[in-house]
């Protein structure tokens, strides 16, 4: 394994494994808590396994984005300062995210099948799409934070807050969106294609930012 590309990709693959390890460790602690608090549940196994699947999906989205935001300012800067190439760092980040999201997905699918929670498969698939999209977005945000400082985070929080308010109002007022009247397969297809398009555009943006980035 002599080429710089191969070494960089292996480094990020191991980083993805480590990330999955940390999150799995956090979930193990939560399992202990759920067992304790769910002691009086009729079906404790179902209760705990359902929680693992739900939280695994949430963590997959949250931690993938968080570590993507961290990336440009920390790990990526460190490896660039040690002679890594920007394009290898870009692919490395993608490998890291795919490793972490992939392992989390496998965990969720195994739990869904073993504990017969097939109804959570769709939820898991949506979480995977959200994790990849928000991971790409997190990377772009990370480059902007590196350039402009933490003010970017505050601006984002305001945008997210306003959006949450708008969607909350839509739900509370019972406003029907045109997409909701579509057949569920068509809706899922549109969401799926949309997710791929958004993901691709965000990754292209992250790539452009990556090419111009500096070591701190």
């Amino acid at each position: 394994m002599n080429s710089l590309s191969a070494r960089t990709r292996k480094y990020y693959f191991l980083a993805g494994l480590k990330l999955f390890g940390y999150v799995a460790a956090v979930q193990l602690l939560l399992v202990v808590e759920w067992i304790f608090f769910g002691a009086e549940e009729a079906d404790i196994v179902g209760y705990v396994s359902q929680n693992i699947i739900t939280f695994n999906a949430m963590f997959m989205v949250l931690f993938n984005m968080m570590f993507a935001i961290y990336g440009p300012n920390w790990y990526d800067s460190m490896v660039l300062s040690m002679g890594a190439r920007r394009r290898d760092v870009f692919w490395g980040q993608l490998i890291k995210q795919c490793t972490y999201v992939g392992l989390s997905t496998i965990l969720s699918i195994v739990l869904c099948v073993v504990f017969k929670h097939e109804n959570f498969m769709g939820y898991t698939i949506v979480a995977v799409a959200a994790a990849m999209i928000l991971g790409a977005l997190g990377l772009a945000i990370g480059y902007k934070v590196k350039k402009y400082g933490k003010i970017v985070i505050f601006i984002l929080l305001i945008i997210v807050g306003v959006q949450a308010g708008i969607w909350g109002f839509v739900l509370a007022a019972g406003i029907k969106l045109p997409i909701s009247s579509l057949n569920s397969y068509i809706m899922l297809s549109i969401i799926g294609v949309g997710a791929v398009v958004v993901f691709t555009l965000l990754e292209l943006w992250a790539y452009k930012l990556n090419q111009k980035c500096m070591v701190n």
Binding site: L4, N73, S81, M82, R85, V145, K146, N216
Partner: peptide
């Protein structure tokens, strides 16, 4: 350039604080 970068080391101050 991988070949060029493999011959260069620029060791600089390591940050004590991240973002």
């Amino acid at each position: 350039n991988e070949e060029a970068l493999s011959h260069i080391c620029y060791s600089r101050e390591i940050p004590q604080v991240t973002m």
